[in-house]
């Protein structure tokens, strides 16, 4: 089982994270070196998924599926956000050269908490592949690839997210566990 970096479990840190999370127009926290030791990303069985004009990527089971469902991690989310998340789904997603996902307003979902753990091994910013979160009344939130980091974002019903097109020049793959939690 993966372990959360002890620093993120200290009370003052959790209190600080909760304050930061609730101060953003789009509430989020981004935590580098979140897991210690860094888990070795075993390769899940991938299926290539494509819906033209919507997405093109590979999907498989989440590498840390059990961890994202664990009480330890859910308690951490509660303490760092002040929310009561309920696990919905977890997947491992890979974007290689030419892959993309796009924002579609008709794909709006109820209020949710999204968690992204970045398994990308090495990345250059000019390859794109960043995560984009949009909210109708706010500036978009851009999250560049950052191996080993955890991104927690609260999205409202009309908020959307996608992963930007990956350049044909990319020689690495943007890989992440993406987990969604329902909020009451």
């Amino acid at each position: 089982m993966a372990e959360i970096n002890f620093y993120y479990l200290e009370k003052p840190t959790l209190s600080n994270l909760k304050r930061i999370f609730n101060s953003g127009d789009i509430p989020f926290i981004r935590l580098s070196k979140f897991l210690a030791p860094v888990p070795i990303g075993s390769k899940p069985k991938f299926n290539r998924k494509e819906k033209i004009g919507y997405y093109k990527r590979q999907e498989g089971s989440a590498i840390l599926d059990d961890f994202w469902k664990s009480s330890e991690f859910i308690q951490f989310l509660e303490a760092s956000t002040g929310l009561k998340p309920k696990f919905r789904e977890a997947n491992n997603i890979c974007y290689s050269a030419g892959d993309y996902s796009l924002l579609h307003t008709e794909e709006s979902e109820p209020q949710r908490l999204t968690v992204t753990y970045d398994f990308t091994k090495s990345w250059k910013q000019e390859w794109g592949g960043y995560d984009l979160y949009t909210s109708p009344e706010n500036d978009p939130l851009i999250c560049n690839r950052d191996p080993g980091s955890l991104m927690v974002v609260k999205l409202e019903e009309n908020d959307l997210s996608c992963t930007q097109y990956v350049s044909q020049k990319a020689v690495s793959v943007a890989q992440m566990d993406r987990i969604v939690y329902d909020l009451d």
Binding site: E50, K51, I52, G53, Y54, Q168
Partner: peptide, 16 residues
């Protein structure tokens, strides 16, 4: 150089 106009055929489920 890139910049070609790519034309796709897509099926009912969006596979191109």
């Amino acid at each position: 150089m890139g910049g070609a106009l790519n034309i796709f055929k897509a099926n009912d489920v969006g596979k191109s």
